[in-house]
Design a binder for these strands. Structure first.
Lengths: 199, 199
DNA sequence: ATTATAGGCTAATAATCATTAGCCGTCAAT
DNA sequence: ATTGACGGCTAATGATTATTAGCCTATAAT
């Protein structure tokens, strides 16, 4: 891995556990395996590292969006994209998202970093909600046509992210998610894989 | 308010938004309206302030537990306490909890502080889950006799805590919670206020 | 072959920070 | 009236930290 990328990965992991303000450039450097001044050959400041993490996530996010089967845009900008999607496709999307935010090393650390930085500034708060809070909730609500149903589908995923982080048996948490999705599906459709828009 | 209490309140608010490591004793002091060295007349170190916040929360928690109508112990230690509780009592308890963690100044800041400190150490992680994660979830699961139902009841509350924090219209978030509790109640009981144990 | 660039290093710097020393006024108890 | 504890203050100190200066090596381009 290139040094620059390695710096971003180690930095996001450190920011995730201690927060930006409590991580020293020395600790980042030693996690990478270099000395602190060498960091400045790649980034112009500690803050620049942080900003580059945000950019990197944005890049990966855009990259991933193409491989997903669901509409990436919001309901207002793209109302036609929401027609004729089967509920099972939505559940598959939920599984994909869960695996992504828990098992992808960068994404998982980024999620924890946003969690601990969310109250520091208006912008961090915006990003937290965009990626992990009201963003996905609203997206789900648009698909389901019901805010309340979106809550019962998405909120458990959100809670399980945090439980997954410290779980000894990660597999058991994934099983809980699976159980949740199955139960939710049964409660909602009675077993028929209706299209979302026919609700 | 006594200076000591005021220090704890201002400190927990600052720790909530920036994290322990990023808050200087100078900032705490100036929020209180004194100079930094004066803090040391009340606490022996910055870390001592942090620990005292934990103790203070523990004290308030014990104080509050008495005024609640639901059993405070866990199901294993007190299995009889879980008999004959009406579902509506559980919903009332949920409302109480939501108001407490969002509107009580100290409790709200404490919740945000735990949220941003949860990945720093094993102990912080334990406390986060005890107060806000698996703790209340397991408690609810014990009452309902179903982990899955507990998820659909508690997880939305947990997600709405975070949404409440940055909401312009706090009243609207409380309304969303109310809507969630009502829908959950209807879905579960069909309108009959059964006792939990009869499930 | 020479050169330029990238990316590592050590040493130095200036700022920030937690903490201590020691002083002073207030006020309740003797 | 005296005392002593409480709780504020200023000034000082030592540790930590982000950042810069300047040097060295390897490698790629001319």
């Amino acid at each position: 891995m290139e040094t620059r990328e390695k710096i971003l990965l180690e930095a996001v992991k450190l920011f995730a556990s201690a927060g930006f303000g409590a991580v020293t450039v020395d600790r980042i450097a030693s996690a990478v395996g270099i000395k602190a001044p060498s960091l400045y050959k790649h980034f112009k400041s500690k803050r620049d590292i942080f900003q580059s993490i945000l950019s990197e996530m944005e890049r990966r996010d855009a990259e991933n969006a193409e491989s997903f089967s669901l509409p990436a845009d919001t309901a207002e900008n793209d109302p036609e994209g929401y027609q004729g999607i089967p509920v099972t496709a939505l559940l598959g999307f939920c599984r994909e998202m869960f695996v992504y935010w828990t098992e992808d090393e960068f994404a998982s650390a980024f999620r924890r970093m946003l969690t601990v930085e969310q109250y520091r500034s208006e912008e961090m708060n915006r990003l937290y909600h965009q990626y992990l809070g009201e963003g996905p909730l609203q997206y789900t609500a648009d698909l389901l046509g019901s805010y309340d149903e979106a809550l019962t589908l998405y909120a458990p995923m959100h809670l399980l992210y945090g439980i997954y982080d410290s779980a000894g048996d990660k597999q058991a948490v994934t099983a809980r998610l699976e159980q949740h999705l199955k139960t939710w599906y049964k409660e909602r459709t009675g077993g028929n894989d209706n299209e979302l828009s026919e609700k």
